[in-house]
Lab assay of single mutants.
Amino acid sequence: QTVVIGDTTYHLNNPEAAQQIAKELAKKYGLKVVISGNTIKLK
């Protein structure tokens, strides 16, 4: 699972954790979560 935040890319072996982290950050910073395949992007 790949999480992309701005110009930073994180690789996590746990998809659920990756999605949870993405949701928390999106909520905290008012970002939009875009999931395509096994890549999660925060914009």
Rank of each mutant, 00 (worst) to 15 (best):
T2K: 12
K32R: 07
V4N: 04
Y10W: 09
K23S: 10
L42W: 05
A17C: 14
H11T: 08
T39Y: 08
G30Q: 05
T2Y: 13
E16C: 11
K23Y: 14
K23D: 10
K23W: 13
Y10I: 13
A26W: 13
T8I: 14
A22E: 01
Y10G: 01
V34K: 04
V34F: 12
K27N: 06
K43V: 15
H11Q: 06
S36L: 10
Q20N: 07
H11F: 13
Y29I: 02
K27A: 12
I40S: 00
I35V: 09
T9F: 08
T8Y: 14
N14S: 14
K41Q: 12
S36F: 12
A26M: 08
K32I: 14
I40R: 01
Y29F: 09
T2R: 10
Q20A: 12
H11N: 07
T2L: 11
D7Q: 12
A17N: 06
Q1N: 11
K32H: 10
Q20V: 07
V4Y: 08
T39P: 00
A26H: 04
L42R: 01
T8V: 13
A18S: 03
A18M: 09
V3Q: 02
A18V: 09
L25F: 05
L31N: 02
A22L: 11
V34D: 05
Q19C: 13
G6A: 05
T39G: 04
A26S: 06
V4D: 03
P15L: 12
K32T: 13
Q1S: 13
I40Y: 06
I40E: 00
G30E: 02
E24R: 14
L42I: 10
Y10V: 06
K43N: 06
K43M: 15
E24S: 13
L42C: 07
S36N: 11
T2F: 13
L42E: 01
T2N: 08
N14C: 12
Y29V: 02
T9M: 08
D7M: 14
A26P: 00
G37T: 02
V33S: 01
V34G: 01
Q19L: 15
E24I: 15
Q1T: 15
E16D: 08
E16T: 09
Y29L: 05
I5R: 03
L12G: 02
V33A: 03
K23A: 11
G30W: 08
A18G: 03
V33G: 00
E24A: 14
D7N: 14
E16G: 08
V3F: 10
A22G: 03
G37K: 04
K28D: 01
Q20D: 05
N13Y: 08
Y10A: 02
Y29W: 05
S36Q: 10
G6Q: 05
K23T: 09
D7E: 12
K43F: 14
K27H: 07
L31K: 03
T39F: 07
N14K: 04
K27R: 12
I21R: 05
Q20M: 11
E16V: 09
I35Q: 05
Q1I: 15
Y10P: 00
